[in-house]
Simulated assay, not measured.
Amino acid sequence: MSVFTGAEFHKQGIHTVRSIALKAGLKDCIAQGMMESCWASEYLTRLFGESFLSTGKHFTTYLSPVYPRDTITIEGEVVGSVSENGKVRVEVEYWLLNQDGVTTAVGHGSSLL
């Protein structure tokens, strides 16, 4: 989490300094939401393949903190498709869960096939 945050270059806070996180009412440092967006991008790239890199898009909403040593899994389902420029854009809803089954983020993404 410190490497992702760039702690050696940036202002330190709830993502990298435990005392600051505790003072903010958290039980430990938390991952940046953008880490979950990166995991969602990886999921969608594996799902759609190289097409996602050039035609894909996604949006993630963060719901619960991700703490050090949490195990995060991502699940999703195809929810629709639309015609776009002679191709099909497949739409997916996804959600990220921690080891306790708590949903930490939800989102939707799509890609042309």
Rank of each mutant, 00 (worst) to 15 (best):
S2N: 06
S2Q: 05
V3C: 05
F4R: 06
F4G: 06
F4D: 07
T5K: 07
T5P: 00
A7T: 00
E8I: 06
Q12I: 03
Q12G: 06
G13E: 06
I14L: 01
H15S: 13
H15P: 10
T16S: 08
R18V: 14
I20W: 00
I20T: 02
I20N: 02
L22Q: 14
L22A: 08
K23Y: 01
K23F: 00
A24Y: 13
L26N: 11
L26W: 05
K27I: 02
D28M: 10
A31R: 05
Q32P: 05
M34C: 13
M34R: 10
E36C: 12
E36W: 04
S37Y: 08
C38I: 02
A40L: 11
A40S: 12
S41T: 09
S41R: 11
E42Y: 01
E42V: 07
Y43C: 02
L44Q: 09
T45G: 14
R46K: 14
R46D: 11
L47H: 14
L47R: 15
L47C: 08
F48M: 13
G49C: 10
S51C: 07
S51M: 02
S51I: 07
F52S: 12
F52A: 13
F52I: 11
L53W: 11
S54M: 08
S54N: 13
T55S: 12
T55K: 04
T55D: 03
T55H: 03
G56A: 15
K57W: 06
H58R: 15
H58Y: 15
F59N: 14
T60C: 00
T60H: 01
T61Y: 04
T61W: 07
Y62G: 07
L63E: 14
L63N: 13
S64W: 05
S64E: 10
V66M: 05
V66E: 00
Y67T: 03
P68H: 04
R69Q: 09
D70Q: 07
D70L: 10
D70Y: 09
T71N: 09
T71I: 03
T71F: 06
I72Q: 11
T73N: 12
T73E: 10
T73A: 10
T73W: 08
T73C: 11
I74G: 05
I74R: 11
I74T: 12
E77V: 01
E77C: 09
V78S: 01
V78A: 01
S81V: 01
S81H: 04
S81K: 02
V82W: 09
V82Y: 10
V82C: 07
S83T: 08
S83F: 07
S83M: 03
E84F: 12
E84L: 09
E84N: 08
N85T: 11
G86N: 10
K87V: 02
K87D: 08
R89C: 13
V90S: 10
V90M: 00
E91D: 07
V92Y: 13
V92D: 03
V92P: 06
V92N: 06
E93R: 14
E93M: 13
E93C: 12
L97N: 01
N98A: 05
Q99Y: 02
G101K: 02
G101T: 01
G101P: 03
T103V: 09
T103S: 04
A105L: 09
A105F: 09
V106L: 06
G107M: 12
H108G: 12
H108N: 14
G109W: 07
S110G: 06
S110N: 06
S110C: 09
S110A: 10
S110F: 05
S111E: 06
S111D: 00
L113P: 08
